[in-house]
């Protein structure tokens, strides 16, 4: 944790000046390896990822249902009795149809949703999508943020002014509103860029949207760091020696920025999982019949009073995953960049 860092430790930036960029990286990795909390979190994450990847196995051999197919008139055997998955109410006027609740057995372990699908199996499939989107969106975000931040900070001048103002506009646009406006449009029509067409149901859309909206949060610190680096002695010295600008960019600036980016990865992942679930909850993220943790919560909303497990289970999955990512993020930050006060929102 932060308090473990002794102030005398060399900041990452100084390490590169000696011309051995791998050394501080390795040192940080070693430090991370001995961070118990971070390692526990990392193992939990690995376990979650593996479990989610096994979703098809679970659906085929354990629950024995197709989690993407409605089974409104199916019946299953419980305690030797044939029970309908969707049970019409028999009391009074007989209003409403209630899906089967958690059986805690192999079939319908967490119950069924409004389409009679196995929630446990969908939870695993949903986890795959949630993790995939969060991970890919993180990469998209870091790529664009680096591109904009480095370009803006390194070249300065008119480029900087234009890009900074663009970031300002994005920044002032409340994140969720931006995401919602983009989603509503893109999900209605898909996206066509030149010869490529992304269909409206594609996962690439949430990935792109979530990736783009957080660009200012990363691009700004990156730009600040690049500007600081440009003024640092070793870069000034390189310029003085007449080393070409592209070499300075690739060999002096970028390696230093990478440290910042590594620190951002787990934190952005955590943030993206929450954002993805929020968008899906507002039904503008992952589109049916695909699932993500957010869509399962959303679909379970209509069952909250009778079958709360449908909404509660994916929420718990989100909390555990995000918690693990945050703990890992703390560890990574302490290891790589102990002085930073990065706080992505």
């Amino acid at each position: 944790m932060t308090d473990a860092t002794s102030p005398s430790e060399t900041p990452a930036a100084a390490g590169t000046a000696t011309g051995r960029p791998q050394s501080p990286f390795r040192r940080a990795m070693v430090k991370l390896w001995y961070d118990r909390a971070a390692m526990i979190a990392a193992s939990v994450l690995v376990a979650i990822v593996i479990t989610c990847l096994l979703a098809p196995v679970y659906a085929k051999y354990v629950s024995g249902t197709d989690p993407f197919r409605s089974s409104l008139s199916a019946k299953i055997m419980i305690d030797g009795k044939r029970v309908p998955v969707m049970a019409p109410s028999t009391e009074g006027l007989g209003l409403g149809v209630t899906p089967i609740g958690p059986t805690f057995g192999a079939k319908y372990m967490l119950g069924a949703d409004t389409q009679g699908r196995d929630v446990a199996a969908r939870l695993l499939y949903g986890g795959r999508n949630s993790l995939l989107i969060a991970g890919a969106a993180t990469l998209v975000c870091l790529f664009f943020a680096t591109l904009i931040g480095v370009t803006s900070g390194f070249f300065g001048g008119a480029t900087d002014v234009v890009l900074s103002r663009f970031l300002d506009v994005l920044w002032a646009f409340p994140v969720y509103l931006l995401a919602i406006s983009l989603s509503i449009i893109l999900i209605a029509q898909g996206l066509t860029i030149g010869p490529f067409t992304i269909e409206s149901g594609s996962l690439l859309l949430p990935i792109g949207i979530i990736g783009v909206i957080y660009v200012p949060y990363v691009a700004r610190p990156v730009r600040g760091q690049v500007i600081a680096l440009k003024r640092s002695e070793f870069v000034l010295a390189s310029i003085g020696l007449g080393i070409p600008r592209w070499r300075i960019l690739f060999f002096d600036i970028l390696p230093n920025v990478t440290t910042t980016l590594i620190v951002f990865v787990p934190l952005m992942m955590a943030l993206n999982i929450v954002t993805e679930s929020a968008l899906s909850f507002l039904s503008i993220g992952v589109q049916p019949p695909d699932a993500s943790w957010g869509t399962i919560i959303q679909e379970g909303q209509g069952l909250l009073y009778n079958r709360p497990m449908v909404s509660v289970a994916p929420g718990i999955a989100i909390v555990i995953t995000v918690l693990a990512l945050n703990i890992l993020g703390d560890g990574v930050r302490d290891a790589f960049d102990p002085r930073s006060k990065l706080r992505p929102r």
């Binding site: 955590a270 929450v274 679930s277 929020a278 909850f281 957010g294 919560i297 909303q301 909250l304 009073y305 709360p308 909404s311 509660v312 929420g315 989100i318 909390v319 995000v322 918690l323 945050n326 703990i327």
Partner: peptide, 18 residues
């Protein structure tokens, strides 16, 4: 505190409602 940071607000709100 970390758990608080990790909970999606809409889900927490729903659980509170429940």
């Amino acid at each position: 505190a970390l758990i608080g940071v990790s909970m999606p607000v809409f889900w927490f709100g729903e659980v509170m409602n429940l």
